[in-house]
Structure formats: structure tokens, C-alpha cells
Nucleic acid binder design. Structure first.
Lengths: 156, 156
DNA sequence: TTACGTGCAAACGTTTTGCACAAAC
DNA sequence: GTTTGTGCAAAACGTTTGCACGTAA
């Protein structure tokens, strides 16, 4: 059974992969929500949206789609692997309570930042070939703020 | 057998933990090298330095030391867990070839950076309670540069 | 009809846990 | 003597793989 969702079918076939239903559903989920799902969360989200996917198929397809450059594999500070439809360089806002990640851009003088050694006996960062800088803004998402406020009230 | 290394003994006992030899050796290794070892690498490094440590003891002690705030658990972009003696806010330079991490500070106008939404339908980062910003400079470490240069020559 | 995708179950590497023994207080 | 740490072996967890079958070109 081929995938009927035109835009995703095209994206996938451009990469010389077969546009199967499983692949289209994964791409559709990520594009529609912009969420950074862990594989486990994705399995649950796909189950809620209709037919469940087997865990092996999910992992196999996530690997294929990531290899093809259609999605990006990222690992949050909590160590959980997540997938992002945004494969262009960008930054993240991470909730330190629940680990949820949000894609963000940045306003400000990014190009003026330079790494400098922290210790006297440390090698000089200038000896590294430098590439991009990735910013990780840490914070508490609105949902966790509400949950924390509730817990604080309950303990009064 | 208690640990004799005065400075580490004190650090550990201040946190109401017993300053055992295993814990002192772990702290000593991290302080002396400033390396960001994975547990597996640490096991190997400790073996080379003398008596090996059992893997269970290593994990148990890494967890205790991290809970006590004596070391920090960090997860690199490659998904490997590593430990850092520097528990103060700081930044990292990450080798995109081997995954090695270096502690760095930053020069430049950090405080002027603000996250901004990337998509039209995205929630506003301003609704998050914001904390610190963590910078991840990506690059290639000197060792990997040399290895890459060698491989390039060999293929000529 | 040949290549590729799916899903089960088994294997894998990393991390955690239960437990008996040893060491520290 | 009670609490805490160690180390083995077993379990748990997330992820990958082998394989038989199904589907696509």
C-alpha cells in the first residue's frame, strides 16, 4: 500500500526511498507537530492517530529518513534520542523539568562568540578547526511551570 | 581501606559520603585530566592506573558523586554519557569526528542572545521561564585533523 | 521477479538492581 | 554492631539485527 500524502511522497522519493505508508506517517507527524519525539513517544502518537507501527519498523525508518537527511536525530541533555524535522542549523529551548525541546532561532550577535580555554594547562581551542555553534537555552516550559505552581500550592 | 588523597577525601566527606578508595580514584582521574570520560573509558583508564574497578561500583559511584554535585553528568551530541569535574556553568567544544569534549568559556556578548520562535504557529519562547544558555561549539580536534589529513594523503 | 519494507523475536550494549560479603564508622 | 560500599550475576532498558513473509516497482 503506497502513501497518498503527496508532499511527503515526493520528499521521500527524491531520496530514492520508497514512499511507504509508515514513512509518510512518520514525516507527517513530525511536520504537523514540530515536536521532538523520542521513538517511544512517536510510537504512542502514531498509535493514537490510527494503526500502530511495529517498533522495529519505526527504528528502521527513523534511521533511513535520518540518513537521507529528511529528519535529524538529536540527543537532549537528558540523554533521550529525539527526532527533528528541521535539518537546518538552528537552536533549541529545552525544558529542564520534562526534557521537551522547542526549535528556536536566535537574536543577537552570535558571530562574536569565541571559545576560550578554561584551565591553565588546557589545549588552546584555536587549535581546533571550528564549525557551527549550537545554543541550548535551558528553561521551564509553560506546562511544567503550571505543574510546579500546582504542587507548590498543594504543599501549603 | 580508606582513601589517603587528602583533597579528594575532604571533598567527598563534606557531602556526607564515605571517602573510599574507588571514589577518590574517580575524582583524581577526572581532576588530573579534565577529560570527559564515558564510563567505559573511565573503567579502562582506571585499569591502566592500577587496580581495576568493577563496572557496578563505577556506575554506583558516578551516580553518587553526581547526586552530591561533585561531578556533572553530560550527554554529548553523539548520545554518549560522559562525566565532567566542572560542575559550574560552562560551555563545550565538541569534536564532530570522535565526540571528545573540551570545557571552554566564552568571549563575547552572551547576555545579548535571545531565543525566538522559528515557525509561525509555534509557541512563544517568552512564555518559558528562561535559565542559562549552554553553548556547544562544534569542530574537529587536533588529533582528528591529523588523522583526516593522513587518510587524505593515503588516498592520493 | 527482483528489490525493498514489515514485524516478530532474538541479540545487543549500556545502565541498574538484588544480594551476599567486606569495610568503614 | 549498624550503616555503607563493593562486586558478582541477573535484570532492565533502548536499540539493532536475522529472518520469513508481504508489498512495490
Amino acid at each position: 500500500m503506497a502513501c497518498e500524502r503527496e508532499q511527503f511522497t515526493k520528499l521521500i522519493e527524491q531520496k530514492n526511498l520508497r514512499a511507504t505508508e509508515a514513512r509518510c506517517r512518520i514525516l507527517e507527524l513530525l511536520h504537523e507537530t514540530h515536536e521532538h519525539y523520542t521513538p517511544e513517544e512517536m510510537l504512542e502518537a502514531l498509535r493514537e492517530r490510527g494503526k500502530p507501527l511495529s517498533i522495529a519498523t519505526l527504528y528502521q525508518n527513523l534511521a533511513k529518513l535520518a540518513d537521507a537527511g529528511l529528519i535529524a536525530r538529536i540527543v537532549g541533555p537528558d540523554g533521550h534520542t529525539r527526532y527533528d524535522v528541521n535539518t537546518l542549523p538552528h537552536h533549541h529551548l529545552v525544558c529542564k523539568v520534562c526534557g521537551r525541546m522547542l526549535d528556536v532561532g536566535v537574536e543577537g550577535p552570535l558571530q562574536d562568540l569565541r571559545p576560550v580555554a578554561l584551565y591553565d594547562d588546557e589545549e588552546d581551542p584555536a587549535t581546533w578547526r571550528l564549525g557551527e555553534v549550537h545554543l541550548e537555552f535551558h528553561g521551564v516550559c509553560p506546562a511544567c511551570q503550571a505543574r510546579l505552581a500546582e504542587a507548590a500550592e498543594a504543599s501549603d
